[in-house]
Design a protein around this nucleic acid. Structure first.
Lengths: 197, 197
DNA sequence: GTCATAACGGTGCTCCAGTTCCGTTTAGTC
DNA sequence: GACTAAACGGAACTGGAGCACCGTTATGAC
């Protein structure tokens, strides 16, 4: 976001403390209850600093998202598409149903609906995540598990989508059963050739 | 929400004008840019009235949602599960990709992430929608298109989920191709017995 | 047609999120 | 280890969202 000219000790420390505090605050009160002055207090940092470096709530959330994107979740390789997709589904499920992480994702997605810059950061985040997992579909294609020409990105999206729908829209529980169903549905659809470009 | 004791002409007119104005404002600026004073101005209604009857942004959005839920989208009956699900997917797709409606859904979902009462209203909205469409899965089961015991709600959710995921998370286009893919994927998974309880 | 009161609406006030100002600290350079 | 400027932090300021007060209008009951 900023701080490219002098990224040394203090600046990095401030950024870390503020992002940590922002994450805590979002997980507690949600996006609507986010107050930059409160974040500054939690981070033991001057209010002015937060306003100067991030300016708005949306800016802060976007930076938080960049920080989250850096912690990539490693892809599994179980030897079968069903196994790989199930591993992915459970990873997403654990993230979304974790009290802190789940609340954080809700808040970030909510912020992205209003602010284009946050939305761009969010889309980039998912592009990264999807790219990380797409190879397991390519492997499945090579093994002949799914038809040639199957769109890997579309398969990975199909695994996550039902879990996000539950989290954000329907309010149904995001549990392991939901994760397994999502993975199996994506596998069945991929085998049937639905995702062939 | 309120107005049960004297729901006559003026009260109803005010509610209508305010909800209309709130919808317009949300579609234009998103949730973050929603200002109750601005809504009052658009509705040509006293600012005091809006604060008294709805109190907060979340309260207003929740009421807006109740209003939206009353306009139910009729279920199709094409004679095949694939056809019915495609019709449902395209209906959802047209709603979400419509500039006004799409923005409205984004805003409402964003509001629900922070406010429990709005969340409850939102979940009720989707329960209604899903219940409206679930019978087409029961018909398919009766026709033998999908295994006995297939969970209707789960199938309907599976159709919408990828479209909402695109709208809110990945940012990929919510077009007709996406709708058809979603419907086909749900159909294939249902046929494979993934949604058997 | 009269009456009681639910609901509306204008005005003015309050409080705090967001900004400005300026002095202080510390990272990076030679 | 001395110097420059980037970044921080405290304090005082400000605009507007949200609230309180009170007079006005229209609804529903008789």
């Amino acid at each position: 976001m900023t701080g490219n000219t002098r990224p040394g000790g203090r600046t990095a420390r401030v950024r870390g403390a503020v992002l940590q505090a922002a994450g805590d605050a979002l997980a507690e009160h949600g996006l609507a209850g986010l107050d930059l002055a409160d974040v500054a207090r939690r981070a033991v940092v001057g209010k002015t600093t937060v306003y100067r470096r991030w300016g708005t709530v949306a800016g802060l959330v976007a930076d938080l998202l960049l920080d989250m994107a850096e912690q990539s979740l490693p892809r599994a390789d179980t030897g079968s598409l069903a196994g790989d997709l199930r591993a992915n589904a459970r990873l997403v499920q654990r993230t979304l149903s974790d009290p802190r992480q789940g609340a954080l994702f809700k808040a970030v997605i909510a912020a992205a609906t209003s602010d284009p810059r946050t939305a761009e950061a969010l889309h980039g985040f998912y592009r990264t995540r999807i790219r990380e997992w797409a190879p397991c579909v390519d492997l499945a294609t090579a093994r002949g598990e799914v038809p040639a020409g199957t769109d890997p990105d579309e398969v990975i999206r199909a695994v996550s989508a039902p879990l996000y729908y539950r989290l954000l829209a329907s309010g149904d529980p995001v549990d392991e059963a939901a994760a397994d169903t999502a993975a199996e549905a994506a596998t069945a659809a991929a085998r049937a050739g639905v995702f062939v470009r």
